[in-house]
Design a protein around this nucleic acid. Sequence first.
RNA 1: GCCCCGGUAGCUCAGUAGGAUAGAGCAACGGUUUCCUAAACCGUAGGUCGGAGGUUCGAAUCCUCUCCGGGGUACCA
Length: 542
Amino acid sequence: MKNYLEKIFNEAAQRLSYLSDIKINFDIPKIESHGDFSCNAAMMLTKKLKKNPRQIAEEIISNLKYDEDIIQKIEIAGPGFINFFFTPSFIAKVIKSILEQKENYGRVDKYKGKKANVEFVSANPTGPLTVGHGRNAVIGDTVANMLESIGYEVDREYYFNNAGRQMRVLGDSVKQRYLQLLGDKIDFPEDYYQGEYIKDIAKLFFDEHGDKLKEEKPEGKFKERAEQEIFNDIKRSLKLLGIEFNTFYNENTLFEEGKIEALLNAFKEKNLSYEKNKAVWLKFIELGGEQDKVIVKSTGEPTYRLPDIAYHITKFDRGYDLMVDVFGSDHVASYPDVLAGLKALDYDVNKIKVIIYQFVTILENGEVVKMSTRKANYVTLDELVDEVGIDVVRYFFIMRNTSSHMNFDLTLAKKQSDENPVFYLQYAHARICSIIRTVSGENIIASTRHLDLLVKEEEQQLLKKLNKYEEEILYASENFEPHRICSYLEELAAAFHKFYTFCRILGSKKKLADARLALAEATKTVLQNGLGILGVTAPERM
RNA sequence: GCCCCGGUAGCUCAGUAGGAUAGAGCAACGGUUUCCUAAACCGUAGGUCGGAGGUUCGAAUCCUCUCCGGGGUACCA
């Protein structure tokens, strides 16, 4: 519908040159009587043309050439809005496209041939995934789905680090627990990993090796096995949510392949780094930052910035047109450094999109649960999935804007899971399936031959929502805003439930029943496609 | 101190590609099942969009200041 308006405006602009000077916007008015679309062009031109906006509107309208089978009427309203009303039969045409394209409806090839990399989760293997990681995981996977739906070929990537102090502590945590199992009286250090899973891993060593590993170094078998066990656990948790990665990128690769060294040299050559107090500093001030920062510590160990930059360079080298990073808000301060470093080396940082999501606050019994993997104070993602199910978890984490803080009352979620909006959507789908089952014995066939009979208020409302789908998906995807899809689907489901209540299929005349069934099936397809992008199931029965 | 995010109905949050009378879900209250699933639908009530200025035909949306909450500000990642 919007496309058609754009078309006739472009055509009119050949006669009214001032139309090309402004960006023409078409909005869907909140109020029904204001039409299907509304345009504010006349008001935007008042200053320029020094004329009354209503006069301008009239001039614009008289220059629009349109098909009366498509547009029913055009009105000037309020201060100078131009309101467009489409014909019911044009609005109903969307059913045809939906039924023809089925699961491909809403997919566009705008970015066909482009490659995207979405990096997310990227938790180091020091413990089970928590609810906090869950938000990251679901956002990343959904964004990946959205990008695929607009044509990108997407790689899902997990970046991790299995060197460093964290991992040494992990290995030693396991060893200490192992020694305890052997009967040694040990005060387990407070700043070690306190979780039960450490004891489980220690038990594996005890069962398999008895006391033979007393002299084994913590960073040897203990660390390796812990990493392996924990990683398996992480992968299993993610798979449970339907999330799988193409690539696990080990930070260590960057060192092994000399990429860190090469990067250091590149900075040096460009005269962007210098030595001070035995450390290497990068000239961030020169790059527009607030202060210079250390990239190699006086101990010779690089700080996280160096591998992060080198890592992104590998993504550029691998030929991605778009690189998405999904970070928690605790990383806000670090990514500008990475981008500045890349920019200094002439990489096009516009290809990088950083999604920062705000933290999830978990409330249990009215109290805030402070998360810490180290202190073993957390609610795991698995526990959450156990409590409320996969669909609710996935939906819950994307139904809100990523930039919005999220409160999650566990107690409430367990109790009131029936009232979660995801069921509202799923129920709409199940209801349609039920209709199709019921109607299958009757002489009713989903047919697009008499769509012009769909003129009732509820039918038209539902049709208008269906007409919005393609645009919504594209907008949400291009702007990396998965929650918009949720809002849209809730509106669609609401429009369907109203249609269901007021427009019966059984008992209507054959032609109308056929058209209504076609409308119901089209709705089913769109619900299915939308839920599919969210990774939420569309059940046939509930 | 400085930087990022948020502050919208009792609660959780949409709306921030400037638009017409600010929305949804839950909670509260009242109604709707001889009829394709009542996990639904209809109605009532509930708001100084944190506060103050400004920009303009028009501001929840943009700018400035300010208050409150979260996160960050390392030779931690």
